[in-house]
Design a protein around this nucleic acid. Structure first.
Length: 272
DNA sequence: AGACAGACCTGTGAGC
DNA sequence: TGCTCACAGGTCTGTC
């Protein structure tokens, strides 16, 4: 479910209820997520105040006084802000209660997400240490893409989904960015010119920014923290549209599995 | 070293 | 209506 825009939307939704607040209780109903949830470590943090909350790649980091809660939503996770007396439903694995008045509740049917406690230095944790730049930061630019792509035989779609290259470009927005940049997803990364990486990096930024403004993409079940859907799905040009006409040339959109993930493109508009 | 396949797990929708 | 199967937004890990 969540790619970078969905995680960013989630962060913005919980920020006001978490930042500067005191963690008053933590309930772990199911500790069997991607990695075992360190229940006792989380409980020990109760009573501490949130220093700040941020997103890094698709991770949400809640910095407390002595440690940091790291959350990842995996493929199917979501966070919602609820009253403490709201009964928990199926797949509601973790509650983080703040100010004894409301909870941030993690729901994750497929349990690909995670909740870990990180000690300082937080950014040296193995999950964070090797991440590439944020796509919406100055550190992300076409020169970097061009430089890292030299000698890479892998498909450009896999290349831009590599977290060491740039973080946060998931399966939906990879297809969308490549369509906007008129680049065939199967093209070997090393074959693209600097000029085409300029277009691609601009489109990655544009697509992600627009998706954030729309509150993310709701395909089946993504909701913002208040339960409302995201509205970017209606903006999708190729993702999930195989067999439908291209919005630019009317050729039928094709799909192809690249790197074990379904990929959508227009064979006319997107050149190798 | 780089590239790829497999693994984790549940829900949903299509097809029979 | 109910069963089976393929597939789904991520990414770490192991193998070639």
């Amino acid at each position: 479910m969540p790619e970078l825009p969905e995680v960013e939307t989630t962060l913005r939704g919980i920020e006001a209820y978490v930042d500067g607040k005191t963690l008053t209780n933590a309930i772990v109903r199911n500790s069997s997520l991607r990695w075992p949830v360190p229940v006792h470590d989380i409980e020990k943090l109760c009573g501490q105040t949130v220093q700040r909350i941020e997103r890094r790649a698709k991770y949400i980091l809640i910095h407390l006084e002595t440690a940091c809660i790291l959350l990842h939503l995996g493929m199917s996770g979501s966070l919602r802000v609820l009253d403490t007396n709201e009964p928990a439903g199926k797949h509601d694995h973790i509650d983080l209660e703040f100010e004894a008045s409301h909870v941030v509740r993690l729901n994750d049917p497929r349990r690909f997400g995670c909740c870990l406690i990180l000690k300082e230095p937080v950014y040296e944790h193995r999950l964070l240490a090797n991440l590439g730049p944020e796509p919406l930061s100055d550190a992300f630019n076409f020169e970097r893409l061009f430089r890292l792509s030299r000698g890479k035989t892998q498909a450009v779609k896999n290349f831009i989904m590599d977290n060491k290259v740039v973080v946060g470009v998931g399966n939906i927005y990879a297809s969308e960015s490549l369509y906007k940049a008129a680049i065939r997803p199967t093209t070997a990364a090393k074959r693209l010119s600097k000029a085409r990486y300029k277009v691609l990096s601009d489109e990655i930024v544009a697509v992600l920014s627009k998706a954030i403004r729309a509150g993310g993409t709701t395909l089946n079940d993504f909701t913002q923290t208040d339960g409302k859907p995201g509205y970017f799905a209606q903006e999708l040009q190729v993702y999930g549209r195989d067999g439908e006409p291209c919005n630019q040339c009317s050729e039928l959109i094709q799909s192809k599995v690249i790197g074990q993930r379904n990929t959508f493109f227009c064979r006319i508009c997107q050149k190798p």
